[in-house]
């Protein structure tokens, strides 16, 4: 069993705000990433939740993809 397997099973160590609280931060996090800015420390626990929760990670990837499409559309 690798460290990757163990993290998938047990999650990353440290505080995890859970799906509801992470969902509250998702839009601001995605805009920060889409704008290419640094990710503020306020998102540390959000990022940990993304490592631990597949559903929230997929949703965040979805929102990032939408912002990317909007950005490309605005640039055209």
């Amino acid at each position: 069993m690798t460290n990757f397997d163990l993290e998938k099973l047990l999650g990353a160590a440290g505080a995890d705000p859970g799906c509801d609280a992470a969902g509250e931060l998702m839009d601001a996090y995605c805009e920060a990433i889409a704008n290419g800015g640094p990710v503020a420390p306020q998102f540390d626990e959000f990022v940990r939740h993304m490592r631990n929760c597949t559903a929230c990670r997929e949703d965040t990837e979805g929102l990032l993809a939408i912002l990317q499409q909007q950005k490309e559309s605005d640039e055209r």
Partner: peptide, 17 residues
């Protein structure tokens, strides 16, 4: 905390996924 449309799109992503 984010633009209104980003905030609103989050709900569409969540419901769809």
């Amino acid at each position: 905390a984010a633009r209104f449309t980003t905030w609103a799109c989050k709900f569409a992503i969540f419901e769809t996924s």
